[in-house]
Simulated assay, not measured.
Amino acid sequence: MSASKKKAKVTPLFDNADWDYATVDKVFQAIQTIAIEEMGLEVYPTQVEVITSEQMLDAYSSVGMPLMYSHWSFGKSFVRDEASYRGGFSGLAYEIVINSNPCICYIMEENSMTMQTLVLAHAAFGHNHFFKNNHLFKQWTDANAILDYLQFAKNYIAKCEEKYGLKEVEKILDSAHALQGQGIDKFTRRQKLDSAALREKELVRAEYERSQYSELWRTLPESKSKDSHEIDQIEKELARKLGLPESNLLYFLEKHSPILESWQREILRIVRSIAQYFYPQRQTKLMNEGCACFVHYHIMNRLYDTGQI
Rank of each mutant, 00 (worst) to 15 (best):
T188N: 09
E237D: 12
K255S: 07
S211T: 02
S257T: 00
L220F: 06
Q212S: 12
D194H: 05
E254F: 03
K255R: 14
D185H: 09
K186W: 09
Q191C: 05
Y213A: 14
T219N: 12
D194M: 09
S225V: 13
E235Y: 01
K226Y: 04
E215G: 06
L193D: 09
Q191G: 07
L250M: 04
K224Y: 06
R189N: 12
I259Y: 11
Q233V: 04
L249S: 07
S228K: 02
G243A: 14
I184M: 08
E215S: 13
E207S: 13
S223Q: 08
H256P: 01
Y208R: 15
R190W: 06
T219Q: 13
R199W: 08
L244A: 07
L253F: 10
W217R: 09
S214E: 04
K201F: 06
D185Y: 08
Q233S: 03
S225E: 11
F252P: 02
I234G: 00
R190E: 13
E254D: 01
E237G: 02
E222V: 08
A206N: 08
A206D: 14
T219W: 09
Y213D: 10
P245Q: 08
Q212A: 15
P221Q: 04
P221C: 05
K201M: 11
P221K: 05
L193N: 08
T219F: 14
S211N: 12
I231K: 02
S214L: 05
G183P: 04
A206C: 10
K236T: 01
K192L: 13
P245F: 15
P258D: 01
P245S: 09
D232H: 02
V204W: 03
T219P: 00
E235P: 01
E215H: 11
W217F: 08
P245N: 03
D232S: 02
W217E: 05
E237L: 13
Y208N: 12
K255P: 01
R205T: 12
E237I: 06
E222C: 06
K192D: 12
Q212V: 14
K236V: 00
F252A: 07
I184W: 02
E215Q: 11
K255L: 10
L244N: 03
I259E: 07
A197L: 11
R210V: 10
V204K: 15
E215W: 09
D185S: 12
L216P: 00
T219I: 10
D227I: 02
L244Q: 04
L203I: 13
E254Y: 03
S225K: 11
